[in-house]
Design a protein around this nucleic acid. Structure first.
Lengths: 164, 164
DNA sequence: TCCATATATTTCATATATGAAATACAAACA
DNA sequence: TGTTTGTATTTCATATATGAAATATATGGA
């Protein structure tokens, strides 16, 4: 039995008490919250041996996924879904650990460039097997057609949320 | 263009650099993160006029969705997806605002009962129109068959995440 | 050039969340 | 009864995240 069942039961009660309450969006929103928590906790547990958190991992991987391995704090904030103030703190922490480097931009000196260091690249290579294994496990029960369909629908949902 | 496009582009680069990196679970995980952020921010903005946060709203609604309008902190932690230490803090805050009441259980005095107060119920009735409108907007672009399909697939995904 | 306005980033105060230890009571049983 | 073990909740130190103000630089006219 899924941990979500009691939540669903409570939604049913709520719908009975508030006839205008729309069940479908509410159930989707609560599923997203539960999923996020699971994903976040599992990622933190997997990354613990390397001494980095899930948000720090996201920063590293955004840089890794960029030609040149470098981004500005503002691009990083957008990509990683963090506020810029938070990027400063995460970047500080990753700099302290020697995983990224902070350099001033020449063309526009308001800008800062955050780039993966040699050590950062090496760490990614190190934790990659564990991360891949985690990701594989997380969709192990689903058929490729299902994950593809889920991706399509989540994108549609996200687009809708971005309308506001 | 969705804010997700650059993230997707970075995943493509990552897959090229790490052939073992499984794109599909990774894209799903990142979509969940983006969705969660949007949902959380939109809820906070909608609830601001009532002086409560999204996590506080969740606590109130979990109680509202329960016969008798009362739960223990541990049940609430499970239902709302918060750690018990966090429930204490949120409950303190809601008590201070007079929206819930904390009473000791008679049968088992290790337990505490958190119940909606009259004022809490009244506040729910007040913000309900705004919350319903928000929820409606959030799925406005999707057909009922699509949201139903999305719900089904998200539950399957969540079940899989709970296997570990 | 000088000024006004805009953008990028950081700082700081505060809010929010977590793990681990502490507390309080319950239940089982010698 | 007294002791042990287990469960529910809270406390506390610390980690994490946010908004708003501060800082620094850029850009586009007057």
């Amino acid at each position: 039995m899924s941990s979500f069942a009691p939540t669903e039961q409570r939604l049913a009660v709520t719908c009975r008490r508030q006839p205008a309450f729309p069940r479908e969006p509410a159930v989707l929103v609560r599923l997203v919250k539960h999923l996020h928590k699971r994903v976040h906790d599992a990622a933190n547990a997997t990354l613990k041996p390397w001494g980095i958190s899930h948000p720090e991992y996201n920063i590293l991987m955004m840089l890794y996924g960029t030609e040149g391995y470098a981004l500005n704090p503002s691009q990083l904030a957008e990509a990683a879904g963090e506020k810029s103030a938070n990027i400063t703190r995460l970047a500080d922490s990753l700099c302290d650990k020697g995983l990224i480097e902070r350099t001033a931009s020449d063309e526009d000196r308001r800008k800062v460039s955050l780039s993966l260091s040699r050590a950062g690249l090496a760490m990614i290579d190190e934790f990659m097997p564990s991360v891949c294994a985690l990701l594989e496990r997380q969709t192990a029960g689903m058929k490729p057609a299902e994950t593809a369909q889920l991706e399509r629908l989540l994108k549609k949902f996200l687009n809708q949320l971005e309308q506001d």
